[in-house]
Simulated scan of single mutants.
Amino acid sequence: MNVTTIYVHIRHWHFWWGVYGFTRRSCNDEITLYLDQEGIKRIAYFDLMTLPGLLNHYNNDFEDDDYTDDKEYIEEIQAFIDGDIDIGYSYIYPRDTEDESYQVDHSAPLNEKGHKPTYIYVWSKLAEAWDMESITAHVHLLARQFLQIEVENVVFLDQPSYEDTKAVYDEECARFGVKF
């Protein structure tokens, strides 16, 4: 199946701060994919992490975090870091019957209970940090992998102007009393 255009929404301002050069480019972003420019026909949601972002997560987030009980997740990260593949995935599956209603609608691996994931982490060695070009390349890969579609165009929704991004950046810096 071919789809002419996929529309992408980036969840965090930090991505745009990096795009416009106010901070280093981000290494972890959440994206939502839509079939329409209005952002109504949602087709997928992914958490994208570059290798530097994953290494930071691995080295800094497990000491006092809830992950310390998730040995399998830590082993998955280590295997990806040490392995030869360029794109890896980690899946969160429903923990109870209430979570079952949050399974992804698209194609994804089933767990031993026959459930699809509720959340998908994408780990990539193909980009050091995220910019519009690397996000676009990954959307093409994810569309093929999980949606079984070929995409001709990727359009970013809600792309803020330089001025709007600068204003939000300045507000956040003032609010927290730091430069990001």
Rank of each mutant, 00 (worst) to 15 (best):
Q78W: 00
A108I: 14
D61Q: 08
D70M: 00
G53E: 07
L55I: 12
H106Q: 08
I77S: 06
E100L: 10
D82H: 11
D70T: 00
D99R: 02
H57R: 05
D96T: 08
N59V: 01
E76C: 08
I74P: 00
G83P: 07
L55P: 00
P109V: 14
N56K: 02
L110Y: 15
D82C: 09
N111Q: 04
Y89M: 08
Q78N: 07
E112C: 07
D65M: 02
P109Q: 13
I77W: 04
Y102V: 06
Q78P: 00
V104S: 02
D66I: 13
L110R: 13
D99H: 03
G88K: 00
D86Y: 12
L110F: 12
N60E: 15
Y89V: 09
E75W: 02
D70V: 00
E72W: 02
G88A: 08
N59Y: 03
E76I: 11
S107N: 14
A79D: 15
L54S: 12
K71A: 00
F62V: 12
E112R: 05
K71V: 09
S107I: 15
T68E: 06
F80C: 09
F62Q: 12
D65P: 01
A108K: 07
D66C: 01
I77L: 07
Q78F: 01
D66H: 11
D99E: 05
Y89T: 08
E112G: 04
L110I: 14
D96P: 05
A79E: 15
D70H: 03
S101W: 06
Y67W: 13
E98S: 08
K113M: 13
D61K: 05
K113I: 08
Q103A: 04
F80N: 08
G88R: 02
H106V: 12
A108M: 08
L55M: 10
E100A: 09
Q78D: 12
G83E: 13
A108G: 09
D96A: 02
E98N: 12
H115C: 14
I87W: 14
E75V: 09
Y91R: 05
E75K: 02
Y67D: 09
L55S: 00
I81G: 02
T97I: 13
D99S: 03
Y102M: 14
G88E: 06
I74L: 06
Y102I: 10
Q78T: 11
E98Q: 09
D70N: 03
D61I: 10
L54N: 13
G114Y: 07
Y73W: 04
T68H: 01
D84F: 04
E112Q: 07
S101M: 05
D99K: 01
I74F: 07
P109C: 11
N59W: 01
Y91S: 05
